[in-house]
Design a protein around this nucleic acid. Structure first.
Lengths: 337, 337
DNA sequence: GTGAAAGCGCTAACAG
DNA sequence: CTGTTAGCGCTTTCAC
């Protein structure tokens, strides 16, 4: 009997000889009942294999017990880690997760978000979404939490609660490290579509005031893009001794192609990225990067969101995480020349 | 006015001076109306900024327009690609996606699945889930599609529709390639928790009847596991000239550690994996692997599922995909010794 | 402690 | 083409 109409609360009530209200309260653990009633209900539930219909429950309560998570590109392990963290916490609290992948195409972000909004109790989204999308998120008036880099350049102070991490600081630390390793001629592989891009560049500049920094702009933030940019980055100007990439994906492609071209990393060129995507540790040479606490971002964002959902709290919180510089062989000692 | 009760269908109806039914039909594009009514409705919708409440709709129709996707480990890009493919198709058809990540811990899979089942119109799940979970999926009676390797050893023929790919064939092709490259002493890094593991081993054995094959069993299918297994795999027996891993994640860790230990890949040892995870192309040396059509699996599974949902079709389909051997430098020419 | 009644917002017959 | 009438399964006052 696989295809049989599932038992409803009413069915259970009838079977147990009580009212639907009572069963409802029992199921939701709202009160204790006379032992007799309790056992009758329990028996009926087992016998009928009853399970609460979440849709009906949602209809009555206005809560779905589902949260939405909007990421920019699910193929980037950085976002995967965020999902992982968020999903973990959601599950612990009995919440489901609806994932929307923007695939870096954000033209209809508003639509997707407002569609999503009606199905969920709250939304977690990247603060890198286009401004219109963020505005929409605010307009919607649902609990929402942003994650990602701080963005002090934003015209108005961010009004949505968020879990943030200092992009400037991350870049500054990396820059300092490169400078102390004696690097003087930098190429920065930029991803100008990201509003976090500028901050990273500023951090680098401030950390390396004496270095030359050439900026190359990429259209995408993929391994392929890094690969394609390699030759120009390496040979496009007189001197280069370090290349910093907008993120690890780009760095992975670049590192690979640099090695293919016979460049010695790090002896001739240092290479680094951002995010500390898990695979970077396993590259040859292992990639220097800055840990942006991806998984923790997801966890914290979800905790914050659930807190807001449950307490109905209004005032926007802002949680700061600390980026961590991860020095690996790809920025090791430079060969004396 | 951000926090205001959203307009209901009834509100629109009243504002437009028609009945709720009419508005409903209009919204769902079921019929055409007199131009006058149409413009009145449209105006009311705009004025009130009305949007359909999906929960109420679900309650009335019994359909949620959401599908569930259960993966074993979202941190494995193989699954990420599947999600990507599935999500793409779902979005095109106006369906939402609820993702459940089992994190390779499948002890409470049944529970998670039956919880998920009530919130969605159908479920896509890995055929690698434990048998109890698959039974549960069938018992639930919701549309469901499995993806993953074929598994001819299964006691009963698989009763659920599925998108499958020949694991045996994939392994056989890889084995043949290794054999033709002159490899004679194989180590297979197994992941016995996966029911696909055996088939891969069989494929290798059949393709390399003259080779010795030592099997090393791993507890997890991660890069770390591959890294830790490296020394034993390389030096644990007299002769080794090739190591095949259960999947690319393991291979990535192994490859890295092998290089760190000073082993020449592929001159001394060939290394290969399965899945064709995107990053494998960018390793040094690039990793030979077998493309298991991850993204396509996700796409096809979703197409199949949506088809079943829409037509209510019963008889279980089985779609076969063809694995593709991807030869890269990690299994290149062996040095004459 | 338990139950009766009134919806949540929408769709689905069936009439007109 | 448009409206009327019933629910979908559950929660929630508010009485008893």
């Amino acid at each position: 009997m696989p295809t049989q109409r599932p038992a409803t609360l009413q069915d259970v009530a009838t079977a147990a000889g009580v009212s639907a209200t009572t069963v409802s309260k029992f199921v939701n653990g709202q009160k204790r009942f006379s032992l007799e009633v309790e056992t009758r209900i329990r028996a009926a539930i087992d016998a009928l294999d009853y399970r609460q219909n979440p849709v009906a429950r949602s209809m009555a309560t206005g809560k779905t017990r589902v949260v939405g998570l909007a990421v920019l590109d699910i193929r980037n392990p950085h976002f995967t880690n965020i999902i992982q963290g968020a999903s973990q916490v959601a599950e612990e609290h009995g919440y489901g997760l609806m994932v929307v992948d923007f695939k870096e195409k954000t033209f209809n972000a508003q639509n997707l978000l407002s569609t999503l909004a009606l199905r969920v109790d709250g939304i977690i989204a990247s603060s890198r979404l286009p401004q219109e999308a963020l505005d929409e998120l605010q307009r919607i008036g649902k609990p929402a939490v942003l994650f990602g880099q701080t963005d002090p350049d934003q015209p108005p102070a961010p009004i949505l609660p968020s879990v943030r991490i200092q992009g400037y600081q991350a870049a500054f630390m990396l820059g300092k490290h490169l400078q102390e390793s004696g690097r003087k001629h930098l190429v920065y592989l930029a991803y100008p579509q990201s509003r976090w891009n500028q901050e990273r560049l500023h951090g680098l500049r401030d950390a390396m005031p004496d270095a030359t920094i050439r900026v190359m702009e990429l259209e995408t933030q993929t391994m392929e893009a890094g690969e394609r940019a390699a030759a120009t980055a390496l040979y496009g100007s007189e001197k280069v001794d370090a290349i910093v990439c907008y993120n690890d994906m780009i760095a992975i492609g670049l590192l690979h192609e640099a090695c293919s071209l016979g460049v010695q990393v790090p002896e001739q060129i240092a290479i680094a990225g951002f995010d500390n995507v898990p695979v970077t540790r396993y590259l040859t040479p292992p990639l220097t990067t800055v840990d942006m606490c991806s998984e923790q971002q997801g966890e914290k964002a979800m905790e914050l969101l659930l807190h807001i959902i449950k307490t109905g709290q209004i005032e926007p919180t802002e949680l700061q995480l600390e980026p961590r510089l991860i020095v690996r062989a790809s920025t090791g000692v430079q060969r004396k020349s």
